[in-house]
Simulated scan of single mutants.
Amino acid sequence: MAVFRRVFGLMVFSVLMIEVANAACSNGTCKILDECSSDADCGAGLYCFSCLAKSRCVRSTATDQFKLVNNSLPFNKYVFLTTHNSFAIEGEPSHTGVPRITFNNQEDNNGVRALMLDTYDFEGDVWLCHSFKGQCHDYTAFEPATDTLREIEAFLSANPSEIVTVILEDYVQAPSGLTKVFTDAGLMKYWLPVSKMPQNGADWPLVSDMVANNQRLLVFTSVRSKEQSEGIAYQWNYMVENQYGDDGMKAGDCFNRAESSPLNDTTKSLVLVNYFRSVPVKPLACVQNSGNLIDMLQTCHAASANRWANFVAVDYYKRSMGGGTFQAVDTCNGELLCGCNNVHSCVAP
Rank of each mutant, 00 (worst) to 15 (best):
A2R: 15
F4C: 13
F8P: 00
M11Q: 03
M17L: 08
I18K: 11
I18A: 07
E19L: 10
N22Y: 14
S26N: 07
G28P: 08
T29D: 09
D34K: 02
E35P: 07
C36Q: 01
S37P: 01
A40E: 14
A44C: 06
G45Y: 03
L46F: 08
Y47E: 10
S55G: 13
R56F: 00
R56D: 01
V58D: 03
R59D: 04
S60F: 12
T61P: 07
S72T: 12
L73R: 12
L73E: 11
V79M: 15
L81F: 08
T83R: 10
E92G: 05
P93F: 12
H95K: 15
P99H: 00
I101S: 07
T102H: 03
N105T: 08
G111L: 07
G111S: 03
R113W: 12
A114Q: 00
A114D: 05
L117C: 04
D118F: 06
G124W: 14
D125E: 14
V126R: 11
W127M: 11
L128C: 02
C129E: 08
C129H: 00
C129Y: 09
S131W: 05
F132G: 08
K133I: 02
G134M: 07
Y139P: 02
Y139N: 05
R150P: 14
E153M: 01
S157Q: 13
P160A: 04
D170S: 04
Y171L: 08
A174D: 15
P175R: 14
F182G: 01
T183G: 03
G186I: 05
L187W: 09
L192F: 01
P193I: 05
M197G: 02
Q199S: 01
Q199T: 12
A202L: 04
A202I: 00
M210V: 01
V211M: 07
N213Y: 11
L217N: 09
L218A: 03
L218D: 03
L218M: 06
T221E: 08
R224K: 12
R224H: 13
R224T: 14
N237K: 14
E241F: 04
N242R: 09
D247N: 00
D247F: 14
K250R: 00
K250I: 06
A251G: 15
R257N: 01
E259Y: 12
D265L: 13
T266C: 06
S269I: 10
L270R: 07
L272K: 00
L272P: 05
V281M: 10
L293E: 09
M296Y: 03
Q298W: 09
C300V: 07
C300L: 02
H301L: 00
A305V: 06
N310K: 06
F311A: 10
A313R: 00
A313I: 03
V314H: 07
Y317M: 03
K318F: 07
F326W: 10
D330K: 12
D330C: 00
T331K: 13
C332M: 15
L337H: 13
L337F: 14
C340E: 15
N342D: 08
S345Y: 13
V347D: 00
A348I: 15
P349V: 04
